[in-house]
Structure formats: C-alpha cells, structure tokens
Simulated scan of single mutants.
Amino acid sequence: MDFCELLCISLGAVVSIYFGVKLVLFSWILFPTVWFPLPKLFFTSMGEWAVVTGASEGIGKAYAFALAERGMNVVIISRTKANLDKVAKEIGDTTGRKAKVVVADFTKDDVFDQIEDELKEMNIGVLVNNVGVIVNAVPCRFLETSNLDQSINQLINCNVKALVKMCKIILPGMVNRGTGAIINISSGVASSCVPLYTLYAASKVFVHRFSQALQAEYKEKGIIIQAVAPFSVSTRMTFYQAPGTLVLTPDEFVNTSLQYLLSGDNTYGSISHSLVGWLLQRIPDWILFSECMQNNLQNYIKEALSERQPPNKNNAIRRPVYHCMKD
C-alpha cells in the first residue's frame, strides 16, 4: 500500500467518523426520550417542592403546571398577586398539588430577603429561573432605548441578578442533599450576535455562560444545571404569535424541553428551535450586522404589532406595556 492510498483511506476514515458523530448528535435531538429517558419518579425524587419565577403566565406558568403534574408542589413567584392566585387555584384544582404564592417584582433591588424567608426550610428539588424583561416592543439601537438608565437597571436586575440570587438561595440545599435541578431560561438570540436586541441578548448570553460554568462546578455534587434557549413561543413577550411549526405554545415547549433535561448544560428545548439555532449560526455576521437587515427587522416587528393590535381612536399603534414581564 503506497502513501497516497494510505492517506486517502485515513482521510476517508476521519470523515466517516466525523459525520458518524454528527449523526449520533442529531439523533439526540430527534429522539430525546430514547437517549435521555427520565424515570417516572425523577422529579419527586429530587425534592418535594419546585420553585418557578415569572410563573403567572406563559412559559413560567407552563413549567409550574408541568412540574405539578409530575408530582411536585410548586412555589410560584411573580409581581402580580391576582394572577398568581388564579394560577395557584388552577394548579390545585387540576393536579391536586399544593401551590404557594410569593409576590415579588424582580426589577427591584430589595426582594430577595423576603423570598429567602418564604422558602426557608423547604425541600426544594427543582428551580426554574424563568423571569425576565425585554425593554422595547420594537427592537432598537442601544441609545434609542426608552428611559435608558432605568431600562439598564431593571433589565440587569431581572434578567441577571434575579438568576444569580435565586441560585444563591436554593443551591446550598440541593448541595447538602446531593440532588436537584436548576433550569435557567435563556433565549435563542443568545446563540448569535443580534443587533437591536443588544441589552436583552447580552443578558441571555450571561444566562448561558453562568449555567454552563455552574454545571461544571456542581455536577459532581449531583446537581443538574441547564440553560434552555427557546426561540419563538406564543406568549405576551412575543405578542402571542400564532402557533405553528416554529412557534410553539408554552405547554408544547415546556413538555418537549423537559425531555432534554439530561442532554447537557444547554438546549434549545425542541427539534424546531434546534433547527432555527443551527441556521442562525450559519448566517454570516456581515449579513446580521448590515443596516439593511436591521431596518428590515424593525419594519417586520412594527408590521406584526400593527396586525395584532387594533388601532386606538387616534389611529396610532398601541404599544405593549413598556416592561413585559417574561413568562
């Protein structure tokens, strides 16, 4: 066998192994219940209670229901008591599990002592850090952000500080028991640089990296820590986009994302969102960063808002609430 023949065989073997590994990784996405099966009592074996932030609607509410359906009592935290009370009643009526309400506005600085008191001595097996805000309905350049100084403080408090402080409160109990799961909700926009969502996307990159490093630190302690990065889910934050192949309902997304809990320290949470993430990462930066792309994105969102919201008496588009509390 001459050198050229040996080289060709070696290259062929390397390519075959490379694509074989890629095929296996792709099968993880297609068949999570085969690769990462969860025992029937998986969640209740970690603790009696689950804590979900931003649980009054959307993704957070769906996580609270999903964990209650899997046998856990839930602590639901958000800023609107009336909405939380309604969710707690629904959980109790439909699942028979307990639902404890804690009212807290995570855009504020001084809420964590109260939360820690409310959770004291509870056997918490799962934490879902879901709460978050996006500061502008229509994406815009950083300096064009409404009430910029206030927006910076509120977004960092809600999207970054709340995540870290909730882990600080709950993680020690998990470490002491040698079991637990922390699910941190990131966003698909963290997978690539997305101009006009500068503050929001950067905060979600923090969620991803913080989760990844924290998992490396505490995996040997028996703790599962995972960042979940959805793209479009039909919630208030996305202006209730019509569900479809790429836009999932909160219940659909949560139920699929939980199937990937053992798949690693980050996941898109569904097959369709994994595909979107793969495609987004292959768009050249010069296209994403172009003025044309930014203008088209702004126009698309403006048109979508005008279609989903009826005009007021002055024929102006009614904008969403300035700070949309993430689900």
Rank of each mutant, 00 (worst) to 15 (best):
T145D: 00
K120G: 04
V160C: 15
I183D: 04
I91W: 02
E69Q: 14
E144P: 01
A162D: 09
L84W: 10
R79Q: 09
V131S: 14
V135H: 08
V103S: 10
N184I: 12
P139A: 12
L127I: 04
D149M: 07
D93H: 13
N159D: 15
K86Y: 02
K120Y: 07
K100W: 10
K168A: 12
L84H: 11
L127N: 05
F142T: 01
Q150H: 06
L163S: 01
I76E: 10
N184T: 11
Q114G: 05
N83R: 15
E116K: 14
N159H: 09
A62W: 03
V111C: 14
P139V: 11
D110G: 12
N159C: 07
V164C: 15
D105A: 05
N123Y: 13
T107D: 06
D85P: 04
A162M: 12
F142N: 01
A64C: 07
V111E: 10
K89S: 14
K86I: 06
G71S: 03
V111K: 05
D105T: 05
A137K: 00
C167F: 02
L67Y: 04
I91E: 04
L67T: 03
S78A: 15
V175L: 13
T80F: 09
A162N: 14
R141Y: 08
K108P: 00
F106K: 00
S187D: 01
R79L: 07
D85H: 00
V138P: 07
K89T: 13
G180A: 09
V131C: 14
Q114K: 11
K86F: 03
